[in-house]
């Protein structure tokens, strides 16, 4: 979507994630060029999904960082201890000013006013810290404090994802599921909604049209009002993709999107990936077990084993890499 097609959408540098003593992902460098389909493969327990979850903001990495769309989004927090200072500093300053003014004018009013303002500031900062709107994060960043992005921040920045085990909102209709995906692109406030102000109406109308469009795009036309749990398995997978697309991502993370599908469903899904790239111009990061799918659609493949990156390259290169064969088939197979 950006003019500079060569720049990578996502750059992971030395991403490491440890769970207790277990190193699930070990110093993985990785980048995803704009407009490509990149796959992540590896045997079970290789750390693919963990890497995915780090990128999506679910886990804070133990080490390393992830840059998304040119901005550092995910890394271990830096100078977290300084954050409370940011909360109390405005309050302290206002109080000091109040005391100073009171000393100068000798009337009690300034101190009282300062106290009220200070309290208000304290509460505001406290709320900001808990809600963490982008302004707050940016303020912290400017002060040299870094906090790793949460999943919702990543979505706002332009990352959409699906789950390995389907995690739709089961009691919602297909169309509602897609509209939840649009959440971060809609802006009606509770007041807009409660009073049915024009912004709410306009957005809802638009969202409804968009939802239909996305459902049609993934091939669920006519199933808008179907409850998600009642959809066929393959349709649920497709609905997850539609829901992810609805957040208007630049990068789509697909976690085993063809798992459990029959060959014809898999073929349809593979076609869908191609269309997502060509028609929507999105970049895709794919975790996949089905080698045929991976070899067929990927521009580049990265292979993980026991948390380490063991190979990277075009499908052809990876296919021939002895280390990959060894990882999949065991020692001796490559010889």
């Amino acid at each position: 979507m950006t003019a500079d097609a060569a720049a990578p959408v996502l750059v992971a540098k030395g991403v490491t994630k440890q769970f207790g003593g277990l190193v699930a992902v070990n110093a993985v460098d990785f980048d995803i060029p704009q407009g490509s389909i990149v796959s992540l493969i590896g045997p079970n327990g290789a750390g693919k999904t963990t890497f995915f979850n780090v990128v999506a903001g679910l886990y804070e990495p133990t080490d390393g960082s992830v840059e998304f769309a040119g901005r550092e989004m995910i890394a271990r927090g830096r100078r977290a201890w300084a954050e409370p200072l940011v909360w109390v500093l405005p309050t302290v300053i206002v109080m000091l000013v109040g005391v100073l003014l009171e000393q100068l004018t000798k009337s009690g009013a300034e101190l009282a006013v300062a106290l009220v303002i200070a309290l208000g500031l304290l509460i505001t900062m406290f709320l900001l810290a808990i809600i963490r709107p982008p302004i707050y994060d940016r303020l912290l960043y400017r002060l040299g404090i870094f906090k790793s992005a949460r999943p919702n921040d990543m979505v706002v920045a332009g990352l959409g994802r699906t789950f390995q085990n389907i995690r739709l909102f089961k009691t919602m209709t297909a169309s509602e599921n897609v509209m939840v995906g649009m959440h971060s692109r809609l802006h009606a406030s509770p007041l807009d909604a409660a009073l049915r102000l024009p912004r709410h109406r306009r957005e809802e109308k638009e969202a409804d049209i968009q939802a239909r469009r996305w459902l049609a795009f993934v091939g669920l036309k006519g199933k808008e009002q179907e409850t998600a749990r009642n959809l066929a398995y393959g349709d649920q997978r497709r609905l997850e993709v539609a829901r992810a697309l609805a957040s208007q991502p630049r990068l789509l993370l697909l976690d085993e999107p063809t798992a459990g599908m029959n060959p014809s469903e898999t073929a349809q899904m593979t076609t869908l990936f191609g269309r997502i790239r060509t028609e929507l111009g999105l970049t895709i990061l794919l975790i996949e077990h089905d080698m045929q799918v991976v070899m067929g659609v990927s521009d580049r493949i990265t292979v993980l084993d026991h948390g380490d990156k063991i190979s990277e390259g075009t499908p052809e290169e990876v296919r021939r890499d002895p280390r990959v064969i060894e990882a999949y088939l065991g020692k001796g197979a490559s010889a």
Binding site: P151, N152, F169, E176, H183, A188, P190, S247
Partner: peptide, 26 residues
């Protein structure tokens, strides 16, 4: 029956998925 209401239901059903769909759960 609004974006907020949908977000509530999403959180109730699956908080993690809701967060991954861009909802600020807090």
């Amino acid at each position: 029956d609004s974006r907020i209401g949908r977000a509530w239901v999403a959180i109730r059903e699956d908080e993690l998925a809701a967060a991954s769909m861009g909802i600020n759960t807090v």
